[in-house]
Design a protein around this nucleic acid. Sequence first.
DNA 1: ATAAAACATGAATACTGATTCATATTTCAA
DNA 2: TTGAAATATGAATCAGTATTCATGTTTTAT
Lengths: 196, 196
Amino acid sequence: MATNPYPRTKRGAERREQILRAAEVMIGTQGFSAASIADITRHAKTALGTFYIYFSSKEDVFRELVLEMGQLTRAMVTEAVADAPNRLEAERAGLKAFLRFVAERPSLYRIVEEARFIDVEAYKAYFTNFAKAYAAQLREAEASGELRPGDAEVRAWALMGIAKTLGERYVLWDETADIDHVVDEAYSMIRDGIAP
Amino acid sequence: MATNPYPRTKRGAERREQILRAAEVMIGTQGFSAASIADITRHAKTALGTFYIYFSSKEDVFRELVLEMGQLTRAMVTEAVADAPNRLEAERAGLKAFLRFVAERPSLYRIVEEARFIDVEAYKAYFTNFAKAYAAQLREAEASGELRPGDAEVRAWALMGIAKTLGERYVLWDETADIDHVVDEAYSMIRDGIAP
DNA sequence: ATAAAACATGAATACTGATTCATATTTCAA
DNA sequence: TTGAAATATGAATCAGTATTCATGTTTTAT
């Protein structure tokens, strides 16, 4: 049966949102396969069948969560970086904001990473969209002399890789890590490299 | 029933290896949950029940594959880096060797990444062990003045993040990428940073 | 050569959980 | 107010597959 794409009533919209939030919690903590539809609807305080009024499958909610996460992350970083005085400071601010975001919504972060194994297209889209915007920023900064010339696309992916991995290691795995220190060290490496 | 930890006969050792290789292929291409034990034993040309003579569960083979992958990766990078004239060149050689490794064994690489969702401990161990050795190298190089001073651990994780992400984007996703170009660009950023 | 230990087999077991559907209840436009 | 459209319900269906086990076969030590 096809998903009801737009709830027609206020109640419908609320239920859909309840279920989406419950899915975020359950899939984010248990993982995609361990979280059952029954878990999700129980947590959302609705009947099992209600799920299928709003989503056509478990993959379907999952995809929606990944999409939502993409919008959130982009909006968040964009805002965090908005009033940086220059591109280098924007890098520092962006990295810091991302790590804070991971700390605040570890479950959504986990969902994006798991997407690689559940919905590759959504996963690729998430990072590719991000990388495109990121590379464009780097190109602009390079043009105005704020950065040393270089391949903006490769740089964008490398910088994303740094953020992802530091988030995993120092935020998700380590309750006690000094985030500011990690940001400072990473930033210094990004800015000046490791050569003496 | 407990796994038979050490096959006592030549035939036993061969069967176990057959099954392990079949598991690598099936789990590496289909993913952990999509690959069934029946798939694995069919591919290994043995009976279903034979699987349980050598492994106690699907998670069990999986863990063994992750462990194997850890040893392989470390050995591979260590060798690739062995005769670099200095630490900076070692970075370049290590990154290049890693990307080549991803190209050669994409399925084992995928298995390591999926471990995050199947066996977190094995996943953490893989990266933590690698990071420890990596950081030690960086510390040594720093002490001998080959690198600018900095937090070796943070650097190790950041550098691993670059390698992981570039491998995913330019090797797994992109058949036609110019690996040497990617390595050169990334290396230049690692060595000198992006500041003008 | 022979018996004990290892190993091999695949049908049967056991269980989980996604999805459907017939049946109520609620909403809302006219 | 009213009935058609939306929404809600959860038991029943349906499918898949991890794991076990009783029964053979092969290997190895003596």
